[in-house]
Write a protein that binds this DNA or RNA. Structure first.
Lengths: 144, 144
DNA sequence: TTAATAAAAGATATTTTTATCTTTTATTTT
DNA sequence: AAAATAAAAGATAAAAATATCTTTTATTAA
């Protein structure tokens, strides 16, 4: 469904939202451990998300990643689109470039519904929406 | 959503169902052209689907691929599962192996609905279900 | 029973994705 | 200012997915 890169990205932004909710920053090592990802790989991903303004960071002691007021309100759809592009929301299920309402692939209409639901779902939750349940230990971002 | 291999596979079986509905066989070259795929690559995929009993084939003159009565009734879910496995139906959206009802990832419950709908949708159409609309030129398997 | 046809099988190549390692730059603290 | 910290950037490597090429086997038709 999502690329591995995208899965790491989603887990990371939710983790950062959670850990930096108190105004502090969270380092790359803690993030990597907290979401079970390769440290250097998630570093690259966050670098990319940083350039796109989806996460913020500061170098040096007490530095790390955090989210400003705008970033906290970004939806998971924003994250997915930043990493994987909008193919999952708009592309043809069978990979046909010219597939559209007028020249639909056999699955077109049936798939449309599902894609839309996915987009609505991902568009309706912000990265900080999970803070409470993570605090309460109701959901998890790693094997734990 | 699906791997490229899986997209080719779905297109191919629908194409074969369509072209062999009259009892004839359809060659690999015609299939490759008919679904816009690399010839040797789709050959490999069909070889695999053949071993799994999802398509039938005959070598030699007048040979080619076709579907027996059982294969015609296979659903697209069967094809997807044969190629990509059941990860898309059962796996965690965030790639967490231990994600489950008792240790859910943040997206678990919201995703469940969508995965189920996808499975129901793909499980409710057989590969031959599209023959009529393909004949009528209402849907397409290549740029055309 | 030979030639032609077409898929199966095996080997290799290319591209993309995922992962790692090293060096540089920015920031803070002493 | 110097030392320590931590991300940014750049380079390289490994693995997986996608694609191509060649040889073999089965089948048919002449």
């Amino acid at each position: 469904m999502f690329s591995k890169t995208c899965k790491y990205a989603i887990r990371a932004v939710i983790f950062i939202a959670h850990k930096s909710a108190d105004g502090s920053r969270v380092g790359i090592k803690e993030i990597a451990k907290g979401i079970d990802s390769p440290e250097h790989f998630i570093a690259k991903i966050l670098q990319d998300l940083g350039k796109r303004g989806l996460v913020q960071s500061l170098k040096g002691p007490n530095g790390g990643f955090y989210l400003d007021e705008v970033s906290k309100k970004h939806t998971l759809a924003d994250v997915v689109e930043a990493i994987d592009g909008d193919g999952i929301f708009t592309g043809c299920a069978l990979g046909l470039k010219q597939c559209s309402e007028i020249k639909p692939c056999p699955l077109h209409s049936k798939f449309k519904t599902i894609r839309e639901q996915l987009q609505i779902m991902l568009g309706s939750v912000t990265v900080e929406n999970f803070n409470d349940e993570l605090n309460a230990g109701i959901s998890y971002l790693r094997r734990n």
